[in-house]
Design a binder for these strands. Structure first.
Lengths: 160, 160
DNA sequence: CAGCGCAATGTTATTCTATAACAGTTCCCG
DNA sequence: CGGGAACTGTTATAGAATAACATTGCGCTG
């Protein structure tokens, strides 16, 4: 169940993610404020990574705040609650693509169209855990990001 | 053969890495200039990630150049030739810990002492490749970085 | 050896990313 | 209604990276 590249009903996908966010926040006793919700909505527009400043520009256009901390605080919140993920390689953020699963996902990042998919992490994490154990290393958090080409961009013969 | 955490003859380790760098450059027909060599030496001082600006400070102290591009160009060169790696999660760089093997390694990063080890990548990459294939994604380059505690810091009961 | 061309360096300036610090506001709970 | 915690607004600054352009060094080829 890789989430991201497959065609799907994206309007439903967004609605579900937003509803899930409401639930998560209610259960955690935290507030999904206007700015936070709006940042999530912006990230949910498509399965693509956005930089904090790109998001900030959008917020500014909408009169929701013009300073970097506004965007960063909302993004930190979303990441903390598993509603979005940070893509280290891009210094950017994506909405979580499969609400409901507690996870440390692995990311497939298309270098042509910038789409980001989340793939099943378990086998990779197992292999990583085993390598770490051999080294006597205790893993807290693993980051797995693959650069490459998504199915659509392979078909289009993209090189960049 | 995880490289990094185990105690070892580090002087020999550095010498070998430097000799390897000479070879690689000679074979590739590129020049290991003063700045490039010096940056590699600085990275080789220990198995730890250094930011570009930390390296730049060292270069400045030694009169080898004071502007960011000096450090970035040398680092790009080293990374391009497999003599150093970029740690995305830290926006930092480490010397390659096992010269000679063509590789896309996986990194184990101690959050207490900042040591970085390279662990065998094959099983992790295999699992990742399989997940990518299921998604129809063509992987160019995979980044795997695990945060946690190295053996020494676990023993010391570190929390930060 | 002259001169061409490429690789590498030096430098200025700028952009992008991220956070510290502090003042003010809102909201919930008792 | 009062107190505290969470949230927002804003200023300022730190940190990471690159664009752009002038200059120098080096090797090759004619």
């Amino acid at each position: 169940m890789t989430a991201g590249f497959d065609p799907h009903d994206h309007a439903a996908c967004r609605r579900a993610a937003l509803a899930h966010a409401e639930t998560v926040c209610r259960e955690a006793g935290v507030r999904l404020t206007d700015t936070r919700r709006r940042v999530l909505e912006i990230l949910l527009e498509d399965h693509r990574a956005l930089g904090a400043y790109a998001i900030l520009d959008r917020l500014r256009d909408e009169g929701l705040g013009a300073q970097p901390p506004v965007a960063y605080r909302a993004l930190d919140f979303l990441v903390r609650h598993g509603l979005a993920h940070r893509i280290e390689h891009l210094n950017a953020f994506v909405a979580c693509a499969h609400p409901g699963r507690g996870h440390a996902p692995i990311f497939l990042i298309c270098r042509s169209c910038a789409a980001v998919a989340e793939a099943p992490a378990a086998p990779v994490m197992a292999a990583l855990g085993s390598a770490a154990q051999d080294a006597g290393f205790a893993v807290d958090h693993a980051m797995v990001e693959a650069d490459g080409l998504c199915p659509a961009c392979q078909g289009a013969g993209q090189g960049a």
